[in-house]
Amino acid sequence: MNLQELYKKHGSAVYRLALHYVQNSEDAQEITQDVFVAVFEHMSDFRGEAQISTWIHRIAINKSLDFLRHRKRKKRFASVFSIFTQNQEAIDIPHFDHPGILLESQEEMKIIFDAINQLPEQQKTALILMKLENLSQQEAAEIMKISTKAVESLISRAKQKLKELLAKENK
């Protein structure tokens, strides 16, 4: 399968997944680009043990998490830097720009995504795959390379933590 075909089949899913992680369309485009470059470069490493969509989902999740880790490091560095330079503009916070969220739900979803962003990586991934992407427990387990029981446990902990965070937000 060539790049055009792969992109046609999986491009939207990758872009959507990246959007759920970063909630910014420009950043999601950058991640999507990185994902397909990686897919193209490592096509020979794909042994066909999993479905190609599972493999691409894994790459997309890893690239999204790498992107967020990098952004976090940059933010931390900028905030330390701003102490010495008194330059508050150094801290660059990307605005919420998720084109997949309906306008009337934007405010509410921003609060929910702020809470989702505070979850540990595994819980966040399980929640995004099952509750936003509507994948089955089995599909999420295959993508995350864990058991279905583990996915169930991650989802239950994620929901519990989200309820706590959102309750705090409502106070």
Binding site: G11, V14, K131
Partner: peptide, 9 residues
């Protein structure tokens, strides 16, 4: 997921 609509890159 009810609050999210399909988007294309």
């Amino acid at each position: 997921s009810d609050l999210v609509v399909a988007v294309e890159p």
